[in-house]
Design a protein around this nucleic acid. Structure first.
Lengths: 227, 227, 227, 227
DNA sequence: CATGAATGAGTATTCATTCAT
DNA sequence: TATGAATGAATACTCATTCAT
């Protein structure tokens, strides 16, 4: 399996199948660029080397992307777009909220198991382009949060989830996923993300305390659990 | 006859070394370096600029640190050391496990509220020195995990915490903290970490499900909660 | 045997035995400097390293010599002075001209067998101080040529040497010695100079042609040997 | 001067490589580099200055040579190659041994009269790259010694040259030439090398002693000339 | 469109020299 | 007098970007 981000052969929803030659080349460049940036880091990636690997002249890269920076950002963007498609497709047709959540998380983690280089790109983006308002990762997260917010609001309304600010849930869940993503990758355990989905969900849903301990500690809507 | 020019014994002619001055200077450099690296990124930090800010010559920096790389790593190391001391001191004298946990987390988050630049350094370290076996952050985490592992094992034994692999708890907690740290920082909400401690702990301890929902869903020691 | 130029314990003609402390230190520095410059080259010799080797502070070197350049030149100068003394002493008391010549050449070569670093210093001097009017080597040669010129003039007068410009003889002899010196050293055959004295003299005195060939070729005072 | 660019027919889109232009540029760089290195010394030669003189950017130099060191060594190499060609051509068609010798020596000296900078480069090479196994000068000498060794061996066989180890002759001749080369150059008498050929050969062939003196001194195959 | 030669701004590091103690 | 901390000028090399062909 290639480290480079490439379309899974299965499906490419909403995209025309016959990309123009130009567009195909653009994708090839982005593929190779993602690989290169992830492997050498943004600064240490030499566009000449990238061009050589693509069997293209350096000037050609500049016909497709106006600068190294834009090339990099386009590579990140492409990764996020593919991620989005895959997650989107995962829960299609499933309506049960918690089942949807698990399916989406699984798809999400699976994507990064398959494309760990995207995680690296997120780091590089943050390290090199501190100036940008937000990182691509968070842009994506925020853009896709809406339905989940509604879902949790509904679950609270239905009495399935404790009454607490939905934002708090979103934060905790988002941070946990984010932390798991990077931690697992940095520890060199790429490939084992998907397997953690259930464990994480279990804790988020049920907490770690035993039933006996739960009843001993009071907690109220304003989170007063007492030592 | 010795080639060496012999010093008169007993005396120590010439300018004496002032170790405390040297050490103080070292700390000053590390302080300024941490800020500079965090603000401009590793690659974009010009040691000349750092030297100017410190009102010393560039060569002086090289008297204290053999290279830019070493200076950077020393700055990260210093940050982690300070963090460690602060967390260590936070729970001193408290024995109740969950109280200790909350105090430590609070101290931990507070440190980063005060020193957000260290978070940036972690990113930079990862981005620029991908080669290093582990990052300073994880080295530190791993080095200090022992007592917490024991604590959770004890809580399980006592029936306060559900029976589950301690590693799973450590992972979830660690990833949640890590994710919260970076997410909060990247979102530009530095300064608000400490306030999240309780919210996070509440979720980790009690989960988000309502009591009614909990009883509807089965979960067993091997985490089978059923959609 | 040390590579560094140091006084042979035997004799130090015309020098007072008790050098002042300052003077002794000066000599020690020059010894170490000659060694260092020869081993690393002028440019690559770090005065800090030299100072360390001497167990002295770098500033101290500057108390004895105003600059790296002057230190180097003083080291070369010292070497040449020692060479001069040794050659001078070699033919003391011998009056027969050709015997004097052989003794001097032997002493000369022997000195460089013992102190090959001086040859290196000559190279370095030429390479780094192209501006100087003449090199120390040639200064020395010229300064000591007088007696030899007289000697050859006498030999011609006496009919022992063919009638030819003395300068021509001096040139040939000087160039041959110079060439032998450097060639032997560069070829890594240090230590074998002295042994070549006789071979070289034999050729210079008698030429390489056989007697039969000599008589076939005419040569006149103006060197017309005929092809 | 033709600027004709040969386009391969068929397909080779983009700007074609112009090898002859590249090669010409290479030679120009080497020419200028030889002069620069000889005039300022290796260490003091700033490639920026060289580039300015060539009216190209510094980066261009690095397109042709990977480092300052390689540029320098290529310049020396080129010089030696030109020397070789010139000497080679000089004795073409002449068979009489001593005439060949004289022609070769003349050509050799003439080359250095015309290109004194190469002598300087030899010095610089030795001074700066002491590590290299052998210097370019000696590599060249050794590579071309064979025919001369054979020639002298033949002359001894024929009785034209005294019976002595050919190596001894080669050494003396080589050292004399080497010494003359450098001595003449260092004395600032560039341009007068060629004129010395005959004088040197006269001495090597006939020696300096008068016939009367020769018969008084015994010399045997093992060089016992007696004081 | 594609090429690749040319560009030149940008920077970490060294080390001779100075001078306060 | 000796020291050694501080200085800062000097410089090889890289590589993103341009543009003539």
């Amino acid at each position: 399996m290639s480290l480079a981000i490439s379309k899974s052969p299965g499906k490419s929803p909403g995209r025309p199948k016959d990309l123009s030659l130009t567009e195909r080349r653009r994708q090839e460049i982005l593929d190779a660029a993602a690989l290169a940036f992830a492997s050498d880091g943004y600064q240490n990636t030499d566009l000449q080397v990238l061009a050589d690997r693509l069997k293209v002249a350096k000037g050609t890269l500049y016909r497709y992307f106006p600068s190294k920076r834009e090339l990099f950002l386009a590579a990140v963007d492409r990764g996020v777009r593919l991620l989005h498609d895959q997650v989107e497709a995962s829960a299609k047709g499933v309506s049960e909220p918690l089942a949807r959540l698990e399916l989406a998380m699984t798809a999400y983690f699976k994507f990064f198991d398959d494309h760990p280089e995207l995680i690296e790109l997120f780091i590089q983006e943050r390290a090199e382009f501190r100036d940008r308002k937000t990182s691509t990762y968070f842009e994506h997260s925020d853009a896709n949060a809406g339905p989940w917010i509604e879902m949790f609001a509904g679950l609270i309304q239905d009495g399935a989830v404790r009454t607490m600010p939905v934002e708090r849930i979103m934060n905790a869940l988002g941070n946990l996923v984010y932390g798991t993503l990077f931690t697992t990758y940095f520890r060199g355990k790429s490939g084992s993300l998907e397997a953690q989905t259930r464990d994480l969900l279990d804790i988020v849903l049920f907490g770690i305390l035993s039933n006996t301990e739960r009843s001993k500690l009071q907690f109220a809507p304003d989170q007063e659990f007492a030592p």
